[in-house]
Design a protein around this nucleic acid. Sequence first.
DNA 1: ATAGCGTCCGACCGGTCGGTCGCTATTATG
DNA 2: CATAATAGCGACCGACCGGTCGGACGCTAT
Lengths: 234, 234
Amino acid sequence: MAAMSPRHSLAEAQQTRERIIQRSVDVASVEGLSGLTLGRLAGDLGISKSGLLGHFGSKEALQLAALRRGAVIFDREVWRPAADATPGLDRLRAVCAAWISYLERGVFPGGCLFVSSTFEFDGRGGPVLALLRRQFRAWGRRLTGELRTAVARGELPPETDPEQLVFELYGVMMSLNHSLQLAPDPQAAARAHRAVSRLLPWRAAPGTRAAALAGGPGTPKAKGGSPPPAANRG
Amino acid sequence: MAAMSPRHSLAEAQQTRERIIQRSVDVASVEGLSGLTLGRLAGDLGISKSGLLGHFGSKEALQLAALRRGAVIFDREVWRPAADATPGLDRLRAVCAAWISYLERGVFPGGCLFVSSTFEFDGRGGPVLALLRRQFRAWGRRLTGELRTAVARGELPPETDPEQLVFELYGVMMSLNHSLQLAPDPQAAARAHRAVSRLLPWRAAPGTRAAALAGGPGTPKAKGGSPPPAANRG
DNA sequence: ATAGCGTCCGACCGGTCGGTCGCTATTATG
DNA sequence: CATAATAGCGACCGACCGGTCGGACGCTAT
């Protein structure tokens, strides 16, 4: 067996790799994926640049690894706390709550790693942007899927446009992220909660709500929003 | 002291400075304010680094100049097209339409310069972040002021929370910006219009509408006439 | 004519970047 | 134990970074 298991030497190597990735995520969330410099990173970890690079081969590979690790953390912080809730609107609300908490607690010290990275790499192309695109698409699909479940269960009106709602939910989270990063605003999280409450009505009796929302003048599909109990006002 | 008009030599100097700032804004919106490098910028403009730096003194001063110019452009593109509208809800809607258009047309090729710059400089501090903070605060104040006017005119319910609405409007614009930058989505602008329509009801008769919005669940207020149909659903 | 100012240049500085290249220790396996 | 493979090191590379400096050139006022 020549090359079957190349795990010949230390298991510490894997551990070192782990330390590198972990540190990379932390640094990248503050300084950006580009601000992640090999020399500084190596210095922080007490290893040499070449020793570090030996694990990944290139900075880009390290960035991709950090981004993938970031996805694992995001999943752990935002999805898993809500995973046990009832699929549909309940779980969606749990996800949003976890999402807000994740931003509020500063799981990534420099704000949501994926949003920052998108701004950093848009218009630059390359594998990093491609990975970001895939990650956002995957998360969006998970949300729309959950929304569709909610619709199927009658928790949201049948004419709900899941992608529109996801668009607006993203907006809420980005606005929260922006508020927290630009100037620590203690009210920001409350505003986000209020916005989510308005987007995902807190109690939706299957029949009544849909009927109430359905009747719109003008265009057949045009519908007044759903400002029911939750308020963006007051 | 003959310091009244120090325009002794070339008026071309001012013109050169103009070219530098213009180019800086373009580059910065794509590459970021940090990606703006003096050498490359000088090369693009066919001048030398030192000649360039002579106009500003430091890279940071150049970044600040670019940001200030960006604010002028934002004002020209987003505020001025709406400035003549009736103050209050009408003007607010006009501003939002111009805002969406500004993002859609890619006035800044790399997406909204201010949002990108915030992500770039948060957690880094310094004069650039301070300027960004001031600019966002100024724009937010303008929006909340307009919202208060709308409330005073009875176009929005009296219990409206202007800052909450601004928070959500920011979110819509950021989500739009994000969608456009991550992957060109022809539907994104329509989604933004729909979201804005839901946040700012399309016709609000002073007495009746406010009351309707204040307590009632159904808001069957949608105007079919305009391009943006008001609905976050279907 | 000339003095003085401002623009702009070309050369150059110290420093950092991502990345390469031998090399040594260490280790797992035959 | 011998061998092969690897983790990690330290020196080094070329490119580029922001920034400095002395001076060339053209303009304006005297």
